[in-house]
């Protein structure tokens, strides 16, 4: 009898403790002091992965046989603005990519300028933060070439990418998708201003006319519909201040894992 009571007590204690733990975890997720600790863990992961991967190691590349029959498009599938629609009609003839900020030599490049740079083609795996992967063949201009032409100033630390897809939630002031990479990742040999997928010009759902490929990063770090690149020393005054659209929604800025 005593044994049974004791077991009943243990059962209730365990159930009670787990309920407390669950609601406790939810409360903790809302507390700044706790999310600050979690933020420090992001820095630790970033630093550790930087030690192991360094600036030059390449993301694995695959063969033509590995290419997915249909590359899954995610996020914005069509910016849908009047401005963007006009660019689609004119086949992006007037699309410009500006390079500004902490550079000696600001640039404004047309798609022809981008295509005139020595291209790189790579068959790589796209990893979404949700967990799925898709393999595709990307062709584009290495971003390192564009950055070199713009001559970054020594104090430049990040490249911020401005995009044409509006992310405005009803009632908010208008804002667009943006992202950022540290300069070492932006200048990585596999980081491209990509304008072809599987040999075809980039479709609207994949970010036409040009998107970023940063093959050692998750998908949300590789923005589509890019029209501007700004080199900065910190991004606290841009957008929500966290370095990207999804970062402003609570995702980590470091997207290597």
């Amino acid at each position: 009898m005593a044994e049974q009571n004791r077991r009943g007590f243990v059962g209730r204690a365990v159930a009670g403790a787990s309920t407390l733990m669950l609601s406790g975890c939810y409360d903790l997720s809302q507390k700044p002091w706790f999310t600050n600790i979690l933020g420090k863990v992001e820095d630790l992961t970033h630093a550790a992965q930087h030690i192991f991967a360094g600036p030059h190691t390449l993301a694995p590349e695959f063969t033509k046989a590995d290419i997915a029959p249909m590359f899954r498009a995610n996020g914005t599938l069509d910016p849908g603005t009047d401005d963007y629609k006009a660019h689609v009609v004119s086949n992006f003839r007037n699309w410009r990519i500006t390079v500004k900020g902490l550079v000696e030599n600001p640039l404004s490049l047309s798609m022809d300028d981008i295509r005139a740079l020595p291209p790189r083609t790579q068959i790589t795996r796209h990893d979404c933060v949700e967990g799925w992967s898709c393999i595709g063949e990307w062709t584009g201009a290495p971003l390192a070439l564009v950055l070199a032409a713009a001559k970054p100033k020594p104090e430049a630390r990040y490249a911020v990418f401005y995009c044409a897809d509006p992310m405005t939630v009803e009632g908010d002031p208008e804002h667009f998708y943006y992202e950022s990479l540290e300069l070492s990742e932006a200048g990585h040999p596999q980081t491209l201003l990509a304008y072809r997928l599987n040999g075809e010009p980039l479709g609207v759902e994949h970010g036409a006319p040009v998107r970023i490929r940063a093959e050692r990063q998750l998908g949300y770090k590789q923005p589509k519909y890019v029209h501007g690149i700004e080199l900065v020393s910190d991004f606290s005054k841009i957008g929500g201040g966290k370095g990207g659209y999804w970062e402003d929604q609570g995702y980590t800025w470091y997207g290597g894992i």
Binding site: A53, D127, R216, G256
Partner: peptide
């Protein structure tokens, strides 16, 4: 193995586990 940066650092992980999705 699910981390794209770790796959760049240690591609052998993919070979051991038969790809990122198998690792997952």
């Amino acid at each position: 193995t699910m981390s794209p940066t770790m796959d760049a650092a240690f591609p052998i992980l993919l070979w051991i586990f038969g790809g990122r999705q198998t690792a997952r």
